[in-house]
Amino acid sequence: MYTAPFSYKKASNLSEALSLLQQNPEAKLLAGGHSLIPAMKLRLAAPPLLIDISKVAELRGIRREGDTLVIGAMTTYRELETSDLLKELCPIIPQAVSLIGDPMVRTKGTIGGSLAHADPAADLPASMLALEARIKIQGPSGSRVVEAEQFFTGMFSTALGEGEILTEVHIPVRPGARMAYAKFPHPASRYAVVGVAVVLDGNSVRAAVTGAGEHAMRLTKLEQALSGQALSAESITAACQGLLPADNLNHDLAASKEYRAHLVDVMAKRALLQAAGL
């Protein structure tokens, strides 16, 4: 399959990418290409210009800055999956990433591409919400930081404005926190039919779900039921009942609204049991 014709520019740094984007408002950024290229092949997208930002050094890598883990937007899944820093300080990211697609998808796909694309069935958004990550965005007139919860605004839509680039993901370091992601994969595509991320930090429980609705969301009912409680198999099972009403959930060939609502309960329970080591 051939995409529509387009021009191609490889940005060598962030300011070049920003100015190319400003001069060509119809252009699209190219990260790993693993959502964009399939869409272009199906001619669902036909941008006149692709600005390849995957090699921009400022947008790559994982580092610790004080109490924050800073992940460059163009860091690939493979780099996230094998990062010793993340395995030590934020193991939910390597764990969730290891369940994305397949190894070839993980060679090319990037955290920034996934978050900017905001596929309702993407895996990483759930962990971003449960970790209370902050998304750094650079635009023509400077940079700003958005809470993950405010970043996802709808199906395939985010807080990113015209001419803006997602540059970094900031994750608070939570020493001693326990965390896990449980996913029910779509049998063919491997995307999340439902995926739940939980972070247990002292007495507080943070949880979020992807795949269920238009975009990833916090499971506030679950957080309120379990925060401050002693976690046991019984208390977890009791809390994971009817977490989301079926009415507003997604429905497709893989799962009805009612089945998705059921899966939210089951995946939340699995993630909690795994994080709590029960």
Binding site: Y8, L30, G33, H34, I37, P38, M104, V105, T107, K108
Partner: peptide, 26 residues
Amino acid sequence: DTSQCGACTVHLDGQAVKSCTLFAVQ
């Protein structure tokens, strides 16, 4: 040709990729 089957897998700088989901320019 839709990124699913892996028949097109090659190594790019030592890592497996699906060469149907990559432009040669990349």
